[in-house]
């Protein structure tokens, strides 16, 4: 059996006295696409932040491709191949689209030409300031910027939150092309159950900071969805 690409073991995390994650463990195999699900405030973003080393663990360990990244700083973990698309788009507003894309580019498959092929709208707006883009375009830019670092694990936190349906479709199509088409290991957090079912082969469900389901997306029954996702 091959070692998991990403491994979380007995992870606990807290914001000051408020504990958020409790004994969270799961693995991701290389090339696997998993959805991290749960209602608001259940610890999804904290899990993503913990993997990216933006959140200190109170206990536990995280390994990426055999490297113990538990004590690494966020920039060191990112250089090992973590690509984060953070919640709320968060582009560098005064920089142009091109500058946002090249600021942290690393050599590899994804370059400016490939990213603008994936998101032609960005190609049309390379010289425009990121702050003047629409919400959907900013989200495309956030995904493009993460891809330009040529990650080995892509983490998408609420990638389509607050976007118009047409734009959401465009972004989901791009995510699918990147994750499934490119064989990129992907952990995605989103509230759109239908899209997650279409993309991810596996579901991990969190409830009050604890893992309550970890299995094939097809095994996520209506009853579980109602109980833990409120849908």
């Amino acid at each position: 059996m091959t070692a998991p690409f990403l491994s979380l073991r007995d992870v606990f995390a807290a914001y000051g006295p408020a504990e958020v994650l409790f004994d969270l463990s799961f693995d991701l195999a290389e090339g696997e696409i998993a959805a991290l699900m749960g209602r608001n405030g259940m610890g999804k973003t904290t899990t993503i932040r913990s993997i990216c080393r933006l959140q200190r663990l109170t206990h536990g360990a995280i390994h990426l491709d055999g490297h113990d990244i538990t004590r690494l700083d966020a920039h060191e973990a990112a250089r090992l191949g973590l690509g984060l698309v953070p919640e709320g788009r968060r582009c560098f507003a005064p920089l142009t689209v091109e500058e946002n894309l090249v600021v942290a580019a690393r050599p590899g498959h994804w370059d400016l030409a490939r990213v603008t092929d994936l998101f032609p709208r960005l190609g049309e707006r390379l010289g425009q300031r990121a702050g003047s883009l629409s919400g959907g375009e900013q989200q495309m830019l956030a995904i493009g910027r993460a891809l330009m670092t040529n990650p080995r694990l892509l983490l998408l936190d609420e990638a389509t939150e607050g976007l118009a349906p047409l734009i959401r479709q465009e972004i989901w199509a791009a995510i699918e092309a990147v994750a499934r088409g490119g064989g990129l290991t992907t952990l995605v957090v989103d509230k759109s159950l239908a899209e997650l079912r279409g993309l991810a082969s596996r579901a991990i469900v969190l409830e009050k900071g604890r893992k309550v389901f970890d299995g094939a997306m097809g095994d996520l029954t209506t009853d579980l969805c109602e109980r833990y996702l409120g849908v």
Binding site: L82, L95, V103
Partner: peptide, 18 residues
């Protein structure tokens, strides 16, 4: 660009490996 990025949001820049 990285310097300007760090001015705006150091955490975001860190998550990009800088």
């Amino acid at each position: 660009l990285a310097l300007e990025g760090a001015r705006q949001n150091p955490e975001r820049v860190q998550a990009l490996g800088i």
